[in-house]
Amino acid sequence: MKKHIPNIITLCNLFCGTVAVVLAARGHLEVAALWVVLGIFFDFFDGFFARLLHVKSEIGLQLDSLADMVTSGVVPGIVMFQLLTDSCWVKAYPDTLAFLPYIGFLITLASAYRLANFNIDTRQTTGFIGLPTPANTLLILSLPLILQYQPTAISVMLLHNTWVLLVITILSSYLLNAEIALFALKFKDYSFKKNALKYAFLALSVLLLFLLKVMALPLIILLYILLSLISKR
């Protein structure tokens, strides 16, 4: 039974992702975001328990990617589709620009490529090359949350602008597969000396969440990328 515990946790991630797909497709983006966050929680701990119980397996690796494809691949694509559908230019010209929301699924395609590449890329055993799909998903899901819970004149103007959303879609898809080395939040031990960068990132993230709440999520992803680039230099 011990070897199946991480896989059961991974399947919990997949269950959360499928629920989020249904909710996002129905336009309940804020509730879908909660299920995705729960799925990402399970996604973090399946690997943790696999290492703790010494039961890492090839099927666990493949199952993890398949679950991530739903939670962190399909869901953000649907969310961007919904945001683009409600954007100003698509609403103003519904017949002419009806195809534009489907461009949001570039995120799903880029996520699929990123996950497939991760499984065969031997460079990504201790870190990441390109933005991990859960981090990218949090970035995309933060957009409807900002509109719902922390709307400002600027954020509403930007996040209802069709062309801004398309730029975010293309940038997101690029970051998923960019040749950018990023650190992983995996702890082999908990000493401060070996994990100073990770502790600094976690502390700054908590501070940003406390000060800015949902608005902090895009800044945390940006901080993650910047700290990774600085550490490599």
Rank of each mutant, 00 (worst) to 15 (best):
F201K: 02
A200Q: 07
S65N: 14
A92K: 04
L139F: 03
L209T: 08
F201H: 01
N195F: 00
F41V: 07
A116T: 09
A216R: 15
L52M: 06
R123Q: 09
L97P: 00
K193S: 10
A184C: 10
A135T: 12
I146N: 11
R233W: 06
L204V: 11
I59Y: 01
L11P: 07
M80Y: 01
A196H: 15
C12V: 01
L63P: 01
L14P: 02
F44G: 02
E58A: 12
Q150S: 15
L166T: 07
E30S: 10
N119F: 08
I59S: 15
C16E: 05
K186F: 00
E58W: 03
T137N: 08
L66G: 01
L147W: 08
T137I: 14
K3L: 12
W89P: 02
S111L: 14
I129H: 05
L138A: 13
L115S: 06
V31D: 03
I221N: 03
T18A: 12
R114Y: 14
E58Y: 06
R123F: 07
L166P: 15
T162V: 15
E30Q: 14
L185D: 07
A116F: 13
V214F: 13
G60A: 15
L14V: 02
I170F: 14
G47W: 09
L131G: 11
T85V: 14
R114A: 13
L207E: 09
A98E: 02
L166H: 11
F45N: 13
K232W: 02
Y102C: 00
I154H: 00
K188D: 07
I230E: 01
T125D: 12
A153F: 08
I180A: 05
